[in-house]
Design a protein around this nucleic acid. Structure first.
Lengths: 130, 130
DNA sequence: ACTTCTCACTTGCATTTTGCAAGTTAAAAA
DNA sequence: TTTTTAACTTGCAAAATGCAAGTGAGAAGT
């Protein structure tokens, strides 16, 4: 599995999600993306091989999981696990930093900052009905 | 300068500090590192060329700066700018994530979590006397 | 004054990661 | 039954990372 550079929680976290794409994927999933094509259609234009590899790594690291395919679809939807959802405060702080420190960035929608780790990892039954 | 993948503040932040080393350097500086050799002696064992290049990039991005060399030293000490210090909440959340989600990580000292952006970027005069 | 040491890097080169473009496979739609 | 679409895989070029060794300038020792 991942070799950690040290016992430091920050360095170790970066050994897992310290790249240009992992937290972009987490952001997209916080915003509701669940399929491979949802993730491909983000404005950042991730390439297909990188997305596939990142999804594999995030799954191996236990941050996301693929639910069992429902009938009428070949593959299951991706969802954040509790561990992955625990990154929400990190991406929110990153968003605040980007908004305040980099000129002309978009303002994320309210519901992005309102998201809480507990809103995810529903374990079973996709009870996301309104 | 940096080319941003999109207007998203998260993706743009990652375009600047989305790698394995930048936030490790910020962490070390929050903990008091000010010289090249301070930064080299962190437990993560960054190699010299990477450190030099990262320092250059962080300086170009306005996150750190090198103060004017005092007499008796050839180069000035590195310090976080206000923009760099604004990353403190990000590294703190990352630390919380690492501590709670990865087994057997070190517990950062109190003063790490107590650090506030306002404690840095003293602008002039190194008034860090006890 | 002259050699030695240390600090802050630079350079060369191998390895790994990232990125683009095109191809594949299976199921859903026409 | 041909065509689309969704979810990838493969090949190869380019960029980032990492190791080891080298450099230059001021500080320290003698």
């Amino acid at each position: 599995m991942t070799q950690f550079r040290s016992g430091c929680p920050i360095a170790s976290a970066l050994d897992i999600i310290g790249d240009k794409w992992s937290l972009v994927i987490v952001r997209a999933m916080v915003m509701g993306a669940t399929s491979y094509s949802d993730l491909l259609s983000t404005p950042e234009k991730i390439s297909t091989n990188i997305l596939a590899e990142r999804l594999r790594r995030l799954e191996d690291a236990g941050l996301i999981r693929q639910s069992l395919p429902r009938q009428g679809s070949i593959r299951g939807a991706y969802a954040l696990t509790a561990r992955g959802a625990a990154l929400i405060p990190v991406v929110q702080e990153l968003a605040r930093w980007g908004e305040t420190q980099i000129p002309d960035r978009w303002t994320p929608p309210e519901r992005f900052y309102a998201a809480r780790p507990g809103d995810f990892d529903v374990r079973d039954g996709d009870a996301a009905a309104d």
